[in-house]
Design a protein around this nucleic acid. Sequence first.
DNA 1: CAGTTAATTATACACTTGAATAATTACTGG
DNA 2: CCAGTAATTATTCAAGTGTATAATTAACTG
Lengths: 215, 215
Amino acid sequence: MSPERRKFKRASAEERKEALIEATLELVAEKGVRGATVRDIAERADVTQGLIRHYFSSKEELMTAAYEHHMVRITDLTSAPLKEISADASGRLAAFVSASLRPPVMEPTAVALWAGFLNKVQQDAHMRQIHQRTYDYFRHKLAEMIAAALEEAGRPASPARLHHLAVACNAVIDGLWMEGGALPEIFAEDELPKIGLESVGAILGLNLENKVDQP
Amino acid sequence: MSPERRKFKRASAEERKEALIEATLELVAEKGVRGATVRDIAERADVTQGLIRHYFSSKEELMTAAYEHHMVRITDLTSAPLKEISADASGRLAAFVSASLRPPVMEPTAVALWAGFLNKVQQDAHMRQIHQRTYDYFRHKLAEMIAAALEEAGRPASPARLHHLAVACNAVIDGLWMEGGALPEIFAEDELPKIGLESVGAILGLNLENKVDQP
DNA sequence: CAGTTAATTATACACTTGAATAATTACTGG
DNA sequence: CCAGTAATTATTCAAGTGTATAATTAACTG
């Protein structure tokens, strides 16, 4: 009996692209961009390797699409909690900080992805542009919320000071995000959001800790 | 005329290993572990590829040696400034924070290296051990210095609180280190050490800013 | 239900990779 | 100055890589 040709189902372009991108992100998190081979990706997406080039003209293009997909998702995930919160400025800030330090934003795979893509981001102009855009959005949003919270407390800050504060708060969040993602087992549940609120609060001179309840 | 055999000079094992390790670190920072091929490494170290296996039994072993070399260097670089400072506890803490946010500790290549090695660190037991050791050392040292500084200020902290504070301060430093390394062009000279001292000071309730002068 | 076409699989190719082995040659100790 | 030997180069190999192309077949359309 000759080896039978593999059975398959047709899928819409959207479904297939989505599946390929998810598989790509998983593998980049596990082995980096170069370790995620087209054969691995195809296998995980449950198709054969030739199909990749039917939807993406090169591995490069697939990587770029996957990165963009990931960044958009992260942006959405940190923005979503803000929509449903009609609290005061400090409450909104607290919600933002807290959401950034919990799953699904803070996850081991997210940190691994960040690391896996860094090289490519630094060397590929298009990737760097995607990164820059997301990063700027984040910092701008954070600065905005800090400004509002400080005004609310009757202590408005100068633009220069605001810049400093935004960089500092962003660093706390990024640093905790990284530690939590890189060494998830050494932190207790809710420990990092708590530390984050405490630290951002200390830097800004605000009390954020009782501003947000466990979602 | 037949292509002449390449001329070469013999070197001591130490020299050659050192050169190979430096070349490895450069290339890992540029292209990640898988992108740093033995041929690339050999070329950058100005030898032919066969020589690598004369000194290291596999690429794996070279990578491990390079990673360890790098981690030891980082540890030394952050410890060195403390030796020559006979200041009070808060002064020593300030020096540590400041040194961590300047070259040669904070550099684009250092962040790229961190990212380049992350995958391997998470998957290789020996690498993870090296990483864990360095990380524990860092946090322990930081916690120690925070404890001393708080006692000096007449506000000793409980172990639990100390743990929180050490995690938070470590996160600020890591986060700023990452931002400075990933986007070096957007920060002014001395801006990050200043923000670091300000933020760590705010978290601990100490004034660290005039504790350290530009080295 | 037959005909068509695009989605999918299968195969082939040129090149890179880590590793292994063979061939040279720079240095050292007498 | 002359072996001897270990450091170094050169060559080979099998496996893996991205890409290109040919062969099939699932699903739609009339």
